[in-house]
């Protein structure tokens, strides 16, 4: 029992070491590839996303609000979405290439190592460029919080960090869930593209503005749980006691989505193993 526990701790330590190693490699690779323009690019990302804030804010400012959310609330929601998008996609970039990996046998390189291919793929292409999203998202979020003047107690702060974590886990599940389709179809780009790009817009506004079928869609592809539900308590939109639970529900949904991906991936890999690319 003790030995098993020790082995487990060893694996965990090994995994974190691996993450640290590849994080440093991805960072140095990014810098070596882009040099100074990496910094310019990072600033560019911030400026570009700032445009979205300007649009959202000036659009809503002229109205009393959108489904009970003021312009500042929506900026807070958008920031939450941005942060979770960045954190939840740090490890998923290699899966954007899944079509190519399956069709041209790039996956084989992961299958000839004594480590699970999923683990290897998660750490292969860590997105260090998302630091821009985080800076902008966190900055705007805290600014909005200051402007709106809602006092936060310890519970708020704790739930704030937990919500970010939960939203990121959900986001990771969303980005990954359709990728194993490549094992059957050869190409999953049209579906993953729609999930990643087409539905992402639903992060900007409260989900109640959408008609029922879209709401249903973003419960299944759980975008609703990334920013909207966790923010209900933080923004004081839902004052009932159950609002405290929303971030935890998000976390459960996120874990479920990632688990579903894992099961789906295993099935796909089995198919790959028996049929080849």
């Amino acid at each position: 029992m003790l030995r098993k526990c020790k082995m487990f701790c060893h694996r965990i330590a090994w995994f974190f070491q691996l993450c640290g190693m590849t994080l440093s490699m991805c960072w140095r690779g990014y810098i070596s590839h882009k040099g100074w323009s990496a910094l310019v690019h990072g600033i560019g990302l911030i400026v570009g996303y700032l445009g979205d804030y300007v649009v959202l804010y000036s659009m809503i400012m002229n109205f009393p609000g959108i489904a009970g959310f003021t312009a500042l609330d929506v900026c807070f929601l958008y920031s939450m979405g941005l942060i979770c998008y960045a954190l939840g996609n740090i490890h998923t970039r290699e899966f954007w290439k899944i079509d190519d990996l399956v069709l041209r046998g790039g996956l084989d390189l992961y299958l000839v190592r004594p480590v699970s291919p999923l683990v290897q793929m998660f750490v292969r292409d860590i997105q260090v460029g998302y630091i821009s999203h985080l800076i902008l998202g966190l900055g705007c979020m805290l600014m909005v919080k200051g402007m709106s003047g809602i006092p936060w107690d310890l519970t708020h702060w704790a739930l704030f960090f937990f919500s970010i974590l939960a939203g990121s886990v959900v986001m990771s599940g969303i980005s990954l869930i359709a990728t194993p389709l490549s094992f059957w179809w050869g190409k999953s780009r049209s579906v993953t593209g729609f999930i990643r790009g087409g539905l992402r817009g639903t992060l900007h506004y409260p989900v109640t503005i959408y008609p029922k079928f879209i709401q249903l869609l973003i419960y299944i592809i759980p975008y609703a749980f990334v920013a909207y539900y966790p923010c209900l308590y933080l923004l004081g939109k839902d004052t009932s006691p159950k609002a405290v639970l929303y971030p935890f529900i998000s976390m459960l949904v996120g874990i479920a989505a990632n688990f579903a991906f894992w099961v789906f991936w295993r099935l796909g890999l089995k198919k790959y193993n028996s049929a080849g690319g």
Binding site: L18, M21, T22, M25, R28, G29
Partner: peptide, 18 residues
């Protein structure tokens, strides 16, 4: 690893193969 020197890849492999 395309943008890095050889020994970076080797150190990663060292870790993967323990």
């Amino acid at each position: 690893w395309w943008h890095l020197r050889l020994d970076d890849t080797y150190r990663l492999l060292k870790h993967l193969y323990e």
